[in-house]
Amino acid sequence: MAQTQDIELVVNGETIQASVPVRTNLVDFLRDHVGLTGSHVGCEQGVCGACTLEVDGVAVRGCLMLAVQANGSQVTTIEGVSAKLVGRQLQRAFVEHNALQCGFCTPGMIASSIEYIEQGGASDRAAIREHLSGNYCRCTGYQSIVDAVVSVIDKGAAA
């Protein structure tokens, strides 16, 4: 239990050094040790998508990756997505379209939406719905989230 390992990673542009228990997953590390509570824990088994965040340019489940596996990585959480234009555009679009109610799934939804747009995803409602089907939302019924993503793509997300 007490076994720990030293790690160094860059989170939202800031270098973090820590000694972490090897069993600690990435999202718990970010929330409890780094103090970035924007990523949320909904199921701890990779299904709900609330803890989705970006590690080295790839959207991952923060609960399915150990903190030690992120050693040497670049991590972006919801607190850091506004550094990118597409992140800012999505944040604005989510507010404009009321694409969130309780907001608990939102950080993961935005991470998955960024992934979709950065992969060159089309402004196609069915394709967006398909891509976001790894993220639970119990409040909105999803339509407004699709509206928000469509609006960002249609406006032309700058690189």
Binding site: R31, L36, T37, G38, S39, H40, V41, T77, I78, E79, S82, L90, Q91, F94, V95, N98, L100, G103, F104, T106, P107, I110
Partner: peptide, 14 residues
């Protein structure tokens, strides 16, 4: 909503 999309919410577990 503006607060929540920035990850600045405060839920009990936070």
């Amino acid at each position: 909503a503006s607060r929540l999309v920035e990850g600045e919410g405060c839920y009990v577990d936070d």
